[in-house]
Design a binder for these strands. Structure first.
Length: 661
DNA sequence: GATTCTGCC
DNA sequence: CTCTGGCAGAATC
């Protein structure tokens, strides 16, 4: 219980498993570790602590979540399954069609970066177990230390128990930044627009280098790693090469440390690779999500994920899963700025206020540096029992001075007293530069549209105006035969939320680059988004009613599809803009003739079944709660874009196994 | 808009 | 004794 659990180490011929780790947050270099022992020591060191209790509390919560989801899962009807199978199949097909194997991405990841830098500046550390961090937290451990089970994110006192000889070195970010800059100079030679992640990793598009020099990606990777080693005076790194960033990142982990792995730009190779790839390797799938997928759906690998595509009602942020945290400081605008400090728990209000003042001071300074002014202030507290509380207020005016921050933060803090806290944090968001509603406004990516439209963005034009979104909002269709609410899938809007940011980001790259090469990249992004439809299953209004409503709503859209023979089917099925199903939102290009027929068959059968069932069980049992929920939803969707899920509803990142950058 | 959760390094 | 800090996005309310 609690703390990290070990996974079973399965033996198989696949390369990532040589790296496959024992712990959920596993790192390379843990191969020879006595897992049992580590597990036991970690447990014993933690047992009974406040932290431990809190972890138990969280675990209980997750267990409830899993149970809930299991219930929902069991409620799925045949028709639902049928429907979602179609949706999933279609999506997979379209993603397959949009697969892009034309780019070569390289992900570089420095090996035990902080620890390696410290060893460089203090060679006596070489060969000895060492960790960068403190008694309370370790940020990096070298490979000697990892042999003992010491790893990042582990508190130092536990690490010392595991490895009494462990040498602790305090963090020194100046040093790391200096060496990071050295590595980036190398990266720049291979891709002037490389995307820097954290200090120790980066993504490079090496397509051009490979082509111009007529050199294999493998050789480029080797050469780059050699250069990094030379120019930093001895730092090693690992590299992964693949057709997209997501996969490249997975690959860079495979032969870590000081190694590389190339996944060729070949469909079969990619398919084979991902088929047994544990989902945990995918960026965005962490401990909790992995647990849920495993417990509820029995999903362990990406292949299973594809198989169960139709069942996946509860999933993840496509962006996180898909683009793998490839933050680019240069172009991506921050949305919030924050700081927080942990200290020994206190109830002393004066002391707390003092801490708050310091935080306000620091935060204000950081904001000045970037010229930021925000109007939402969030106070974060972690109580002595590790419970986290956030309290936010949105102001009339934009603030940035430490006085303003402190003034309002104090109010927020006062309202929480008395309380014993071990951490206080402040965050400012809603910056001046942002237009209101920018995050949710799909029309905001005008720059992107502008840039990409000229090139190859054939598909997203249908999403570029607001009417489409409004229409999608109204496309709420009851697919639930027995009148129960069953399972909700939120197939995200193609230009939803942060997708736009990524597209924007790519566009910015384009600006900077001032060349045509990156247009392709932008295009790829847009293409991958375009595939998202929008589907919702709710549990009350009659099919007929919905259908009629649709007719009215869609008056200006194309109402017929001449490929359908049956007049009955024609009555049921409408292809909006000759593309999207008016009933469920699934998107089928006109060329998919057979699929369209099948799809309309489905709705037709469903309609019949529906009518039948409403005859047989006239009093369709819908809880008033369910109906209210439905009404609320309807109201919301009138004004806003569809925010569909009430529970764990969102669509799957399976897309992103296929999607390129 | 407010709050909590999840994830990444 | 002693379990980070900073950010982002999504879900939920």
């Amino acid at each position: 219980m609690a703390m990290e659990r070990s996974d079973d180490v399965t033996v198989s011929p696949h390369p990532w498993q040589s790296y496959n780790t024992v712990y959920t947050t596993a790192k390379a270099g843990m191969e020879g570790v006595d897992k049992e022992k580590v597990q036991r020591i970690v447990y014993e060191m933690s047992k009974g602590s406040k932290y431990f209790q809190n972890e138990e509390r969280k675990e209980t919560f997750i267990r409830h979540k899993v149970d809930n989801m299991r219930l929902q899962f069991a409620k799925l009807t045949q028709a639902d399954l049928f429907h979602y199978q179609k949706v999933a199949d279609r999506r997979i097909l379209e993603l397959e069609a949009s697969r892009d194997l034309s780019r070569i991405w390289l992900h570089v990841d420095m090996d035990a970066f902080y620890a390696a830098v410290e060893t460089l500046s203090n060679p006596t550390l070489k060969g000895r177990p060492m960790a960068v961090g403190s008694m309370s937290m370790i940020s990096t451990a070298n490979y000697e230390a990892r042999k003992f089970g010491v790893r990042s994110a582990m508190p130092g006192f536990i690490a010392r128990k595991l490895c009494p000889e462990l040498i602790f070195v305090p963090t020194d970010f100046k040093k790391y930044t200096y060496y990071s800059d050295l590595t980036r100079k190398v990266f720049q030679r291979y891709d002037p627009n490389f995307i820097a992640g954290s200090l120790d990793e980066a993504y490079l598009d090496i397509t051009e280098v490979c082509r111009e020099r007529n050199v294999k990606s493998e050789e480029i990777a080797q050469e780059l790693r050699d250069s990094v080693y030379e120019e930093t005076g001895g730092l090693t790194c690992s590299a992964g090469v693949a057709p997209n960033r997501l996969l490249a990142k997975v690959c860079s982990d495979i032969n870590k440390p000081n190694g590389q792995y190339v996944l060729p730009n070949d469909r079969l190779a990619v398919m084979t690779f991902i088929s047994s790839l544990p989902i945990r390797k995918i960026g965005g799938i962490g401990k909790v999500t992995e647990h849920i997928l495993k417990e509820v759906f029995g999903i362990n690998t990406c292949e299973q994920m594809l198989d169960k595509g139709s069942y996946l009602c509860a999933l993840f942020s496509p962006s996180t899963a898909g683009l793998g945290k490839t933050d680019s400081p240069q172009v991506r605008f921050r949305k919030s700025i924050s700081n927080e400090r942990t200290f020994s728990a206190t109830e002393d209000e004066v002391l707390m206020h003092k801490k708050l003042a310091e935080l306000a001071e620091m935060l204000s300074a950081d904001m000045q540096k970037e010229g930021l002014h925000g109007r939402t202030l969030t106070l974060k507290l972690k109580t002595a029992s590790f419970e986290v509380r956030n309290r936010a207020m949105t102001l009339q005016n934009y603030i940035s001075s430490s006085e303003d921050i402190l003034k309002h933060a104090s109010k927020l803090l006062k309202a929480e007293l008395p309380v014993s806290v071990r951490l206080i944090g402040l965050r400012v968001s809603q910056f001046n530069g942002e237009k209101s509603g920018a995050t949710a406004d799909p029309t905001q990516k005008t720059i992107t549209n502008f840039i990409t439209s000229g090139e190859a963005n054939r598909n997203n034009s249908s999403f570029s105006d607001v009417t489409d979104h409004e229409f999608v909002s109204d496309t709420e269709t009851d697919l639930s035969i027995d009148g129960q609410r069953t399972c909700q899938l939120d197939c995200r809007d193609p230009f939803d939320g942060n997708h736009s940011l990524d597209v924007n980001y790519q566009s910015c790259t384009l600006w900077k680059n001032d060349g045509a090469e990156k247009v392709q990249t932008s295009d790829n992004d847009a293409e991958s988004y375009y595939h998202h439809g929008c589907t919702e299953v709710l549990g009350s209004t009659s099919f007929q009613g919905q259908f009629e409503g649709k007719n009215v709503n869609s008056g200006s859209n194309f109402l017929e599809n001449d490929r359908l023979d049956s007049s009955c089917q024609e009555a049921v099925m409408l292809w909006l803009n000759d593309y999207k199903c008016s009933l469920c939102g699934i998107e089928l290009p006109p060329s998919f003739v057979e699929e369209r027929l099948e799809h309309s068959d489905f709705h037709f059968a469903e309609k019949l079944q529906k009518e039948e069932s409403s005859i047989h069980q006239a009093p369709v049992l819908i809880s008033s709660q369910s109906r209210d929920q439905k009404l609320r939803n309807n109201r919301q969707s009138k004004s806003k874009k569809p925010k569909l899920s009430q529970k764990e509803g969102s669509y799957t990142p399976i897309d992103y196994f296929f999607v390129k950058e």
